[in-house]
Design a protein around this nucleic acid. Structure first.
Lengths: 180, 180
DNA sequence: CTTGAAATACTACTACG
DNA sequence: CGTAGTAGTATTTCAAG
């Protein structure tokens, strides 16, 4: 299947000096049509073999592989992961949480963020504008386990004035891919 | 040809409750320690080769591959995808949107859901409890493009009474992996 | 700078024990 | 589940647009 492994058994390992050092904040301006086709495919299904991918984008296998590795090294492809079905994995409940902090000081924010990332099942945590300071999404097993999480962890997050929970009743759409 | 038999360690597991045939496969009750180790790894990095994965979970390569394919066929692994850096891909702005519908009728909900999924850059859309009917998250380029999206698409979603936008100022955490 | 073709090394995969 | 063998793939090398 797919295996872009990192090998360094008996070859040059320190000579991987790529000349793409100028791509620090390089947007997708440097992406041509083929790169976007590659990204669209990998965003949908990255378990495709490199030869099949090369055929799809009408390129030879080595050329295709080089582009994929460049996209990875440039950071545009953050990683390749397996998506697990939450329900089947026993995390069928999703809760969206709006958080208001006591004080709006840098220390208060930093302290909260540090603690929030450690909450079990926390999938997202963002600073937002509006009536909340943060939005978090948390995956858990059921309402019982969420209630436990709420009482034991969420209410003890540092600097929290108010927590408002929105339980997800139905997941209409949940995707990791966006238009390129 | 698809003899999906149960795990070999099947001693005292009798078929106690089999009344619900809703889900195609059984939950993670049939997952042993090795399966969970595999899932944890693939959830973090699925670009690992099968032999390397087998070594990590202390299994022979064929046995490991058999488990991975069973996890895929069971639907527990929904897919393997590449995660793209939104900022690098020109979708650096994230907006969380709370939606209130005019009427709470099945038709109203269905119509909204159908339209919401077609909004460009819509990553998530969920029915929630509380003061909103839906929460959506939308990825877009910048505030200008979001303003255009807001004026041209969001305000025309069917049956919408109110839309409240929470612009994400800082993404603290955004992950696809949850504890197993 | 990137591509493509051939050759090699490694891996996925099948059959069997 | 593991071992061995085969088929196919990834990956390097090198020549050329």
């Amino acid at each position: 299947m797919n295996a872009t492994k990192v090998r360094g058994i008996n070859n040059t390992e320190a000579a991987a000096d790529v000349s793409t050092a100028s791509t620090a904040v390089d947007p997708l301006h440097a992406l041509d049509r083929i790169d976007r086709a590659i990204l669209r495919q990998l965003q949908t299904d990255a378990s495709i073999s490199n030869v099949a991918l090369a055929a799809k984008v009408k390129l030879s296998a080595p050329a295709c592989l080089r582009r994929v590795e460049r996209l990875k090294e440039s950071g545009l492809i953050r990683g390749v992961v397996a998506l697990i079905d939450p329900k089947a994995a026993g995390a069928g409940m999703l809760v969206i949480i709006g958080v208001v902090l006591d004080r709006s000081t840098p220390e208060s924010f930093a302290e909260f963020e540090k603690a929030a990332q450690k909450v079990a099942g926390c999938m997202e945590c963002h600073v937002v504008t509006g009536e909340f300071d943060y939005f978090m999404t948390i995956r858990t097993r059921d309402s019982d386990s969420f209630n436990r999480l709420h009482a034991e962890q969420l209410l003890y997050l540092p600097g929290v004035r108010q927590i408002r929970s929105f339980m997800v009743l139905k997941e209409i759409l949940s995707t990791t891919k966006f238009p390129l």
